[in-house]
Write a protein that binds this DNA or RNA. Structure first.
Length: 272
DNA sequence: GGCTGTTTATCTAAGG
DNA sequence: CCTTAGATAAACAGCC
């Protein structure tokens, strides 16, 4: 590894996948959604490496936005002029980087066209409790997005492949009791960062969950594909995750870590 | 024409 | 060794 001088790493490729970088950008803004151009800007602001060969990596990034179900496209409202749509993170993709690696996820986040693949009979009551908790948090996170939706929310006129059917969204969000230990990884400070770091932005003025409309479209759940429990330490692993994947508007950053629900052992959804 | 977005194909490398 | 996630290239369509 080169010596960690101020500019030593700045030209080096950051150890993040495009998915990670995009997630950072999206989670780093208060609205939790960004147009493509702003995602570009975020990345270029923070990672000098990406100030070159823009054609190449931006094509890759666009490919990732379209290809990965963890990103959802949100149309602009009439009062939000500009080019292109907004991009947001799917509310249920919070555990994409559970393994602590921002280069490669254990499993691709993939929507499954309507099937919740967890067998309800095999899900313990503790697991159900966990799921319900995550569901509540997903609602809160979604409410931020809802503020940007056209009146009436999503309708059949919107050709979304990922309808927000709250009742079926199971989110698993990871908290960082202790702050942002381990992020960014040593040797990859966020140089030249005119913007506040993503983890410094916590939702404020979020809508209350009760404001969230009862979406009653189809019930297409979003299932983050199974991620094997890390060897041993359940919640300790979360310390390796950046807060941009851990934030929750539902809870203040000062919340005691003990309050967090850990994923119950044996809670597995399966996918093909 | 440039930007945005989708899709397909190919290759590399990580992970199991 | 096999599978799969990620990177990259490229073709193409829609839109302003």
């Amino acid at each position: 590894m080169p010596r960690p001088g101020r500019n030593t790493y700045s030209d080096q490729k950051p150890p993040y996948s495009y998915i990670s970088l995009t997630a950072m950008a999206i989670q780093g803004c208060p609205e939790k959604m960004l147009p493509l151009s702003e995602i570009y800007k975020f990345i270029m602001d923070r990672f000098p490496y990406y100030r070159e060969n823009t054609q190449r990596w931006q094509n890759s990034l666009r490919h990732n936005l379209s290809f990965n179900d963890c990103f959802i496209k949100i149309p602009r409202r009439p009062d939000q002029p500009g080019k292109g749509s907004f991009w947001a993170l799917h509310p249920s993709c919070g555990d994409m980087f559970e393994n602590g690696s921002f280069l490669r996820r254990r499993k691709r986040f993939k929507l499954l066209g309507g099937l919740l693949l967890a067998d309800p009979l095999t899900v313990s009551s503790k697991a159900q409790e966990f799921l319900m908790q995550q569901q509540r948090e997903a609602k809160l996170r979604l409410s931020a997005l809802h503020a940007h939706l056209p009146p009436g929310g999503y309708t059949s006129s919107l050709p979304f492949k990922h309808p927000f059917a709250i009742e079926n969204i199971i989110a698993r969000e990871y908290k960082m009791p202790g702050g942002l230990a381990g992020f960014p990884p040593a040797g990859f400070p966020l140089h030249h960062a005119p913007l506040p770091p993503p983890w410094s932005v916590y939702g404020s003025g979020m809508m209350d969950s009760s404001d969230f409309p009862p979406y009653s479209l189809q019930t297409f759940p979003a299932i983050p594909v199974p991620i094997k429990p890390p060897h041993g330490h359940g919640a300790m692993l979360h310390a390796h995750l950046p807060a941009f994947l851990a934030h929750s508007p539902a809870r203040s950053p000062q919340s005691p870590p003990g309050e967090e629900l850990s994923p119950p052992a044996g809670l597995q959804v399966s996918v093909h």
